[in-house]
Design a protein around this nucleic acid. Structure first.
Length: 596
RNA sequence: GGUCCUGUAGCUCAACUGGAUAGAGCAACUGCCUUCUAAGCAGUAGGUUUCAGGUUCGAGUCCUGACAGGAUCACCA
C-alpha cells in the first residue's frame, strides 16, 4: 500500500520537476506489469503526452530516470512504447511483506462510523427454501461480512413474508387434506409439510379449473371461480378480520415452518440480528402517503387513489394507495423503510432481492429520496439473477425445485465419498470426519454460488456444476490445509517465524514476489468488494491467491532450506497466506479445515 | 411495444473500471508422487469478445443501431 503511494508521489514529483506540471495523485494509477515484461508495476504515460509535449518513449524514460534516482523502492525500469515498467528494489519486497506480517488484524478496515442494514433471505412461510434462496442467503450473509470488514456496523435483517393469499393457499389445502397431520406424525420438517400442502393446493386448483372449463367456462372465468381459490380468498379476509380459528391455524402452521427454517439456516450458516414480519408491517406506510400528499410528492386521482409521478425520471406513474384506501406492496415497503430507520438510525440499507424486482426498488428508492429521507442516498438494491436448471425454471408450486435442504445434504454426501475415494480420512475420528464433510460440501456449494457476479443469471447443473477441483471452494480449502500442515511441522521444528529477522534476506524467487504482491492486494479487494457489494471479487481473489501459493509450494522448498532466515521467511509467507485465505473465506461464509 | 439486465474458448467464469499479444477452471491430450498433503504443479490445444458502424494514440470495456436470451411494465406480492 505505502509502496505504491510512495511510487505515485515520486511520479507526481517527476512531473513537477521535469515538466513543471501539477498532477493530482488520484489521476495517477499503477497497474501490475504483464508477465511477459520485466517489472512489477506499470505506469501508462499516454494520457499525459499533450502536456509533456514529448514522445511516449521520451516521457516514460525521463520519469523512469527520475524514479530510479529519487525513489528508493524503484531499482530499475524499462520502457515499451508508452508503458513504463518499474522494477522494485529487492529490499522493498521484504518491507512490503514485513508491514503486512506485523499487522495484528488482517482484512479489517477501520470503522467508518456508519450503520448499514442488509436485508436478505425474506422467505415465504408457505414452502421450504430452494436453490434460489441459497444464492440469496449466501449473498446476503457474505455482503454483510464484507461490509463489516469495510468498517461498517452491520445489522442483518430478515423480512419474513408470513401473510397473504399464498399463505392461505397452504392453509386451505391443509384444512381439506391435512387430517390433523403434524411434522412429527408426517416425519417431515415443518417447512416441507407446509410446502406439501402448497403443492396440493395447486394440484386441486388446476383440476377444478379443468372441471369448470369442461362445464363451459372460459379459462379466465374458471381461474377466478375455482372453489378452492375462493376459499383461500375468504380465508385471507378472515385472517385480516382477526378470526380466532383462522389466526390459530396460521400461527400453528407458521410455527412449524419457522422450526424448519431454523434448521435450514443453521446448516447454511447464516443468521440475523433482526426479524421483521409482514403480518406486522403490512399496514404501515399510510402515514407516508399522507406526508407525500402534503409535500406534493404524491397526487390524488378523482377516484381517490394516490399516485406518484415519476415520468420526469424516465419511469411512469405508480400507484401508492388504492382508491378504497388499502395498501399496495410499495406502501408497506415505504413504511418498512422508515421503520428500519427508526429502529436503528441506519445510514445505508441494502436489499438482497432477485432482479425481477428491479423496477419496484427503483420506484421505491426514488420515492424515499423525493421525500427527503436522510437514508435515501444509501438505499441499494443488490439485485441478483435467477438460478436456472438445465430443465428450465424452478417453480415451487409445481414441485420442480431443487430443495435447499436436499441439495446441501447431497453436497455433504458427495464430499464424503470424494474424501474417502482419495483415502484422506486416516487420523480423523467419526465426529471430525463428519465436520470435514460438512465444511467441504458447503464450501463447494457456497463458492460455486458466490464466485459469479451477482447480477448474472446462472445455470445450475446438479450433475456437473459442483466440482472439487480447479476454481472451487475445496481447492482453496485444500491450499489452507496444506499450509496448516507446514505450520504444524514448523512448530515441531521450533522454527521462529513469529518474530523473524529478514534483514539478511537476499534475492527472492519470482514465485515469492508474486505471492507478496497478491497478499498485499487483500485490503484493496475488500474495499472494492464493499463498494460493489460483490462477494465474487473476494472469491476470485482467493482463487488467484491459492493458485499462486500452490505455484510457490511446488517451486520452492521450505524445510530442506539450509539458511535459517530464508526458511523462516518461507514459513512466514505461508502463514500470512493461510491467514488471508481464512479471513477471505470467512467473508464468503466458508470455513477452512486444518487438515483434509 | 417501452424500460432494465445479460451476451467473451465446447462448457462455467475473469479481465485491476479505456491500456501492451483477452486470462483461469472444467472437459481433451502430455509430463511430474523415494522430497513440506497429487483435492496439487508444469505444459499442449482451444478466440473475428453476437454483428455493423462510431469516438481516439489505444475499445471486450464508452456511444449509436441491429440480433439473441431474460426480467419488468397490475387498484398482485
Amino acid at each position: 500500500m505505502s509502496i505504491q503511494q510512495n511510487i505515485l508521489s515520486g511520479i507526481q514529483q517527476a512531473f513537477r520537476q521535469i515538466f513543471q506540471l501539477e498532477v493530482e495523485l488520484d489521476k495517477l494509477n499503477l497497474a501490475p506489469t504483464r508477465k511477459e515484461f520485466e517489472g512489477t508495476y506499470t505506469f501508462v504515460v499516454f494520457t499525459f503526452l499533450k502536456q509533456t509535449k514529448l514522445s511516449p518513449e521520451m516521457t516514460a524514460s525521463k520519469i523512469g530516470d527520475f524514479l530510479k534516482e529519487n525513489c528508493r523502492d524503484v531499482s530499475d525500469y524499462n520502457v515499451v512504447k508508452g508503458f513504463l515498467n518499474l522494477v522494485l528494489n529487492e529490499n522493498s519486497w521484504i518491507d512490503i511483506f514485513t508491514t503486512l506480517y506485523r499487522k495484528e488484524t488482517i482484512g479489517q478496515l477501520p470503522s467508518n462510523g456508519q450503520k448499514v442494514m442488509v436485508e436478505y433471505s425474506s422467505p415465504n412461510t408457505n414452502k421450504p427454501l430452494h436453490l434460489g434462496h441459497l444464492r440469496n442467503n449466501f449473498l446476503g450473509y457474505s455482503v454483510a461480512e464484507i461490509l463489516k470488514a469495510n468498517g461498517y456496523e452491520v445489522i442483518k435483517s430478515n423480512l419474513v413474508n408470513d401473510r397473504g393469499i399464498h399463505i392461505c393457499k397452504s392453509m386451505v389445502a391443509y384444512l381439506h387434506f391435512g387430517n390433523g397431520e403434524t411434522p412429527e406424525s408426517a416425519g417431515l420438517k415443518g417447512d416441507h409439510l407446509a410446502g406439501k400442502y402448497y403443492v396440493l393446493f395447486d394440484k386441486t386448483y388446476k383440476t377444478q379449473i379443468k372441471e369448470l372449463q369442461a362445464k363451459g367456462q372460459t379459462e379466465e372465468e374458471a381461474k377466478k371461480n375455482a372453489p378452492i381459490l375462493i376459499e383461500a380468498q375468504d380465508m385471507l379476509r378472515k385472517w385480516e378480520a382477526n378470526d380466532p380459528q383462522t389466526v390459530a391455524l396460521w400461527k400453528q402452521m407458521n410455527q412449524w415452518v419457522y422450526a424448519g427454517f431454523e434448521v435450514t439456516y443453521q446448516t447454511m450458516g447464516v443468521d440475523f440480528d433482526q426479524f421483521y414480519y409482514e403480518s406486522d408491517t403490512y399496514l404501515l406506510g399510510k402515514d407516508i402517503v399522507e406526508e407525500g400528499l402534503k409535500k406534493g410528492v404524491f397526487f390524488k386521482k378523482e377516484n381517490g387513489s394516490v399516485w406518484v409521478d415519476l415520468t420526469e425520471e424516465g419511469l411512469d406513474e405508480k400507484l401508492v394507495l388504492r382508491a378504497d384506501g388499502t395498501s399496495v406492496y410499495i406502501t408497506q415497503d415505504m413504511g418498512t423503510a422508515d421503520l428500519k430507520y427508526r429502529d436503528f438510525q441506519i445510514d445505508k440499507s441494502v436489499y438482497v432481492v432477485g432482479n425481477e424486482q428491479d423496477y419496484h426498488f427503483e420506484v421505491l428508492f426514488k420515492i424515499m429520496r423525493k421525500l427527503g429521507r436522510s437514508y435515501g442516498p444509501g438505499l441499494y438494491h443488490l439485485s441478483y439473477g435467477m438460478v436456472d436448471l438445465p430443465t428450465g425454471k424452478m417453480k415451487s408450486r409445481e414441485g420442480t425445485v431443487v430443495d435447499a435442504d436436499d441439495l446441501m445434504q447431497e453436497m455433504i454426501d458427495t464430499a464424503e465419498s470424494h474424501t474417502k475415494e482419495l483415502g484422506k480420512i486416516e487420523g480423523f475420528n467419526e465426529k471430525q470426519a463428519q465436520e470435514l464433510y460438512r465444511i467441504l460440501g458447503l464450501g463447494a456449494l457456497k463458492y460455486f454460488l458466490l464466485k459469479v457476479d451477482p447480477k448474472k443469471r446462472m445455470l445450475f447443473n446438479p450433475k456437473e456444476s459442483i466440482e472439487f477441483q480447479g476454481n472451487t471452494g475445496p481447492f482453496i480449502q485444500y491450499s489452507h490445509a496444506r499450509i496448516a500442515s507446514i505450520l504444524r511441522k514448523a512448530d515441531q521444528l521450533e522454527v521462529n517465524y513469529q518474530n523473524p529477522d529478514f534483514s539478511s534476506m537476499g534475492q527472492l524467487a519470482e514465485s515469492e514476489t508474486s505471492l507478496i504482491l497478491i497478499l498485499n492486494d487483500f485490503e484493496k479487494k475488500i474495499a472494492q468488494a464493499g463498494t460493489e457489494y460483490s462477494p465474487a471479487i473476494i472469491a476470485q481473489y482467493l482463487f488467484d491467491l491459492a493458485k499462486e501459493y500452490n505455484r510457490f509450494y511446488a517451486d520452492v522448498p521450505i524445510f530442506s532450506e539450509n539458511d535459517a532466515s530464508i526458511l523462516a521467511f518461507r514459513v512466514a509467507l505461508s502463514a500470512q497466506t493461510a491467514k488471508t485465505i481464512k479471513k477471505g473465506m470467512r467473508l464468503l461464509g466458508i470455513a477452512v479445515p486444518d487438515r483434509m
